[in-house]
Amino acid sequence: MSVVANLLFITYGGLAHSMPVLVLHLMLLPLNVFRLVEIFRTTRLIRAAQPSDGLPISITAYFKIVEKPADAVLFRRGDPADSVYYLKSGRILLEEINQEMQVGEIFGEVAFFSKSHVRTLTARCISKCEIAAISEAEFTRLFYQDPAFGFFILRLLAERLDDNMARACTDHSDHAQHKPV
């Protein structure tokens, strides 16, 4: 919209012989074109950021690889949050909800967004695992500075919320069916 306004004011400034208007909008036009290109580029990156796609390539350099043996507890419910994790290989169980994390999934991010800033579940390695970890400071910096990563995390959180709601509805209907009459 600003590019169109610049073009109209340039036309007006030229036809009306108004040098201040003409010079101002000739100077603003390249800036507004540059900003428009940036908006389109960012929008394309945001649309491409999907939780099911694994880690966005732009952030893989910030992760540190750690190996954990089978039966190791990565974190317990109530522990303070210090890292977000990405499962490269192996199997991890989120004990309280009996859900297994799949290779390529990010987990542990919910605690960073909760008011208490503590883990909401316990994560235990079912088998030997190779895990990529990112510190809270790096995660927070990337979340605010990289729009594609920020939207990737927001979509992931929305997906987790949908899953939790579906699980709660299923649990509620199971309890209602087994209720004595």
Rank of each mutant, 00 (worst) to 15 (best):
R124I: 09
V73F: 12
E130A: 11
R76Q: 10
D174E: 01
M165V: 13
I153G: 05
A148M: 03
A158R: 08
A72C: 04
Q99K: 12
D146F: 11
F151T: 04
R160A: 04
D162N: 03
I97G: 10
R167M: 03
G108H: 09
S116R: 12
D174W: 00
H172S: 01
V110L: 15
V110G: 08
V73R: 05
R77Y: 02
I106L: 15
D146V: 15
L93I: 10
A70I: 01
A137G: 09
S116K: 10
N98Q: 13
A168C: 05
L156Y: 14
F151P: 01
A158T: 08
F112A: 10
R155L: 08
I131L: 15
D163L: 08
T140F: 02
L93D: 03
A70T: 00
S114P: 02
N98R: 08
H175C: 00
I92Q: 03
T140W: 02
L142W: 13
E95S: 14
C125D: 05
R119I: 03
K88A: 15
V66G: 08
I153S: 10
L74N: 01
I97K: 14
L94M: 15
H172F: 09
E136H: 00
A168I: 01
D71S: 03
V110D: 08
N164S: 07
L74I: 14
A166N: 13
E136G: 07
T140Y: 01
H175G: 02
T120Q: 13
G90V: 06
A81I: 02
M165N: 11
E96N: 06
I126R: 02
